[in-house]
Design a binder for these strands. Structure first.
Lengths: 366, 366
DNA sequence: ACAATGGGATTATGCGCATTATTAGCGGGT
DNA sequence: ACCCGCTAATAATGCGCATAATCCCATTGT
């Protein structure tokens, strides 16, 4: 620890005023009818410059103020070992935004781990208090905990759409519904009629949004929906063959490379026999050489937007008040990827019909 | 903010003791001859359990204690955009270690950025005080700042070997010297005699360690050293051809893929005409398909070890006192990679040693 | 009987800041 | 003279904890 850091008291002494005055000048606020003359203000400012004073964030926070620290709580290990990196892209955006608005980031790595997932226990969430607010990200969050957090009035933002009673839970998510619907539409527009959905059918928001998008488009076109649970790649491949699907949508939980191998083993090649559309970056591994069609989740942008929103909610300085941080519930557009795994289906007679996918408008997330 | 968190005073009231007693029981320490009876201790412990008390890290820190937060300061953006990810692997190790010993991680993203590199200004380093100690990582650190930090007696650890007067600066680095020497030796053992070093020749520790390793082995074997500055890939390739090198060591600053392309343009193929050894993971891009020979830097391990060391220096609870955290200056062994870009050199007469040489036309594209 | 221990806990204080309540000075209206 | 209103600032307090200083009381020694 530094040998006696410069405190407001030191500054006050130099400027010939009281510590409180220094505090007022620094904060710029004068809540209870306190007035500071311009002359005094300048004297204090000079003293600050001379002494090189800078606020002690810890004391600041203890005294009930803000300390320009925003927390990041991940329900799973933030940086998993062995390559699989789910949070990385989010963090990129988060860090970038943090740098922009000048806040520090506190990673809550000390939370107790229960069954491979971090838990926000009472003692755990007390720690959140260090930060002005907290970003929550993860797939295995506990509803009860969230509810509790909401009740405490502590500012936080969830990364990913999450429903809550009264919509009190702020979030920044990706519009899976629209993106999935659009992906399905692309397949349908090319002439596919037997379009299957491969992925879990849970009730969590990302999954149910994807399912809704798929169902909506299929209903619009009067096509039958087909769901396959990706328990085992071989099993999945067999079902695809059996049902004679000509296109499949793959949830991120499915490993496309693995599935492709299983399909190849059954004489089905992608995209000649089967078009494949990814509904977001797959969780499983680093991107392989295949350029998958479908869409990607704008993770960096989500991270950045979430931090900006949190910053506003937490009343952190540097928070901008522009339109991008106004809405408590933000859904960002996913990025459509043309890719090379989507083609028109074979004609009913079995002859190949290899029209390359129309080049889609590709947008880059910042 | 929580509606009145449970404080030590609350616990004390319930247990029928004073706040100080609670503090003593919690810390386990009794610095000034204070004694607590076992019975009282139990009563306090029970009260803690009942109330669900957990310490307020902010107050704890302000009062001069530890708060189980360790800082991470990176001189460059921690998570760079656009794929290039230098710190990622370190962070993986750091986070893992942090989880192990139960500390939170504070990322100092608010530091002022000057010329693309973060700076530890006075106001910046005052913020470090939030944490019990701080990990420093980066390539463009400022010596003066480090010196200043040392003087303040604030606990920190540098990630990467850094010299300092009196060896007062604790660090955890990789043994580039030994690893480079060994890489050079592998080439020499295969019969290479014209072994060049491609990379910057600055005086920073990583670079100078690599150079020393190279020089040492070449001297041992009585071979002439040859240095090439990698200003431009084409230029570099030309020089390699001109000097008729049969093997080159590549510093991480060099992009091996790019160089390879330039070499191919001059009719030099790797590894048939030229063996290539990487002295650590290249900075430039995501790993391509080529399996480069050479060595890799154990980044995860370095991160973890550094955090463990820091934890001990900072006196953080949970810090283990085993041999791995005892030494203030730790050099970790690099991982040797066999790879596929190292082969025996062509025989002196010019006939191919492995594969028949395909006489190539030399092209100039300066 | 009384001072000298020493175990067992308390009181008091301060960390650096935010904030509320309060004070001091001063000109003008009556 | 007195109160009023207004400006300009200060004193006081508390956030929750660590810790030094202190205190109380039952034993023990002489």
């Amino acid at each position: 620890m530094p040998r006696h850091r410069v405190t407001q008291t030191d500054v006050a002494a130099l400027a010939g005023v009281s510590q409180a005055t220094v505090s007022f000048v620094l904060s710029g606020r004068t809540p209870s009818g306190v007035r500071i003359s311009e002359e005094t203000r300048q004297r204090v400012l000079d003293a600050i410059r001379i002494t090189g004073y800078s606020v002690n964030p810890v004391a600041q926070r203890l005294a009930g103020g803000h300390n320009q620290i925003l927390g990041v709580f991940t329900y799973e290990t933030t940086f998993p070992r062995g390559g699989r990196d789910f949070y990385g892209p989010f963090l990129v955006g988060i860090e970038h935004a943090a740098e922009q608005i000048g806040v520090d980031l506190l990673l809550f790595t000390s939370a107790r781990v229960v069954e491979g997932s971090r838990r926000l226990t009472r003692s755990g969430w007390q720690r959140l208090g260090i930060a002005d607010g907290c970003l929550l990200l993860g797939q295995h969050e506990e509803r009860a905990e969230l509810q509790h957090l909401l009740d405490t009035n502590y500012p936080f933002v969830f990364l990913g759409r999450r429903e809550s009673e009264g919509g009190r839970l702020p979030y920044v998510g990706a519009d899976y519904l629209a993106a999935t619907k659009r992906a399905t539409e692309r397949a349908a527009d090319l002439g596919h009629r037997r379009i299957g959905y491969v992925g879990p059918t849970g009730s969590d928001e990302p999954t149910s949004d994807r399912l809704s998008g798929y169902r909506a488009l299929m209903a619009e076109r009067g096509l039958p929906t087909q769901f396959i649970d990706p328990a085992d790649p071989g099993q999945t491949a067999s079902e695809i063959a059996e049902r004679q699907l000509s296109a499949v949508l793959l949830a991120p939980e499915v490993d496309p490379d693995e599935l492709c191998r299983a399909l190849a083993g059954r004489g089905i090649s992608v995209p000649d026999d089967l078009s494949v559309l990814l509904l977001g970056q797959p969780h499983h591994r680093l991107p392989g050489p295949t350029l998958w069609s479908g869409f990607t989740i704008p993770r960096e942008q989500m991270g950045a937007r979430a931090l900006l929103l949190l910053s506003r909610l937490a009343g952190t300085a540097g928070a901008r008040e522009d339109e991008s941080t106004t809405d408590l519930h933000q859904l960002l557009e996913c990025t459509e990827v043309a890719g090379e795994t989507l083609t028109a289906p074979r004609a009913p007679d079995g002859s190949a019909n290899r029209l390359p996918a129309a080049p889609e408008q590709e947008r880059n997330n910042a």
